[in-house]
């Protein structure tokens, strides 16, 4: 996702803080039911169901990893075949040059290697990382997102976003606090 600085008067969005995961999950679900789409939730630990609550449906990492794994497997097998049949054709132990069972461990290892590299790189790329600047850190309390607080941020780019109305909506979720996030 690209960084967007649009919205009202240099405002990135409105952020509500919670002290436990359950109210955050509830708030995310209510915000989605209310019609908000551009939002994100921040928690110090994985909260099961939260990704779905903020609108995550499926991601393309699994497909990228599958493609990576397939390429790794084909590449590994191809490498072994090329070495044993084309580049260094030695007869070992009376076996045929193309003794494919011997290639399988290397094929498997290459599949795992390339699949895991694509998983990490693909995840970072799709998340837009590394990213030196993110507006949510303009909120001083936000550092507690990695410690003991849970945050829901509705972004100003959302078509339904309205400073007063969205603030009222977030207030009624009974958060600890509702804060404006500068872009």
């Amino acid at each position: 996702m690209e960084i967007e600085y649009t919205g009202q008067s240099g405002l990135y969005g409105l952020m509500a803080s919670f002290d436990r995961p359950e109210p955050l999950l509830e708030a995310a679900r209510e915000a989605r039911a209310e019609g908000y789409r551009d939002m994100d939730a921040y928690a110090p630990m994985p909260v099961e169901g939260l990704a779905e609550a903020v609108g995550f449906r499926s991601n393309s990492v699994s497909r990228i990893v599958f493609a990576g794994g397939l390429m790794g497997a084909i590449g590994g097998f191809g490498l072994m075949w090329w070495i044993s049949v084309i580049a260094y054709p030695h007869i070992v132990d009376g076996r045929p040059l193309n003794s494919w069972p011997a290639y399988i461990p290397i094929t498997f290892e290459c599949m795992v290697l390339i699949a895991s590299i694509t998983a990490v790189v693909g995840m970072l790329a799709l998340n837009g990382l590394p990213r030196p600047y993110h507006p949510v850190f303009n909120v001083p309390q936000f550092e507690r997102a990695s410690r003991d607080q849970f945050f829901l941020c509705i972004e100003a780019t959302d078509p339904k976003f309205d400073l007063a109305a969205t603030r009222r909506f977030l207030e009624h979720l009974k958060p600890l606090e509702v804060m404006e996030v500068e872009a």
Binding site: P21, E22, L25, P46, V47, E48, G49
Partner: peptide
Amino acid sequence: GAPRETVA
């Protein structure tokens, strides 16, 4: 409780 909700 709901399965795997909040705790993996």
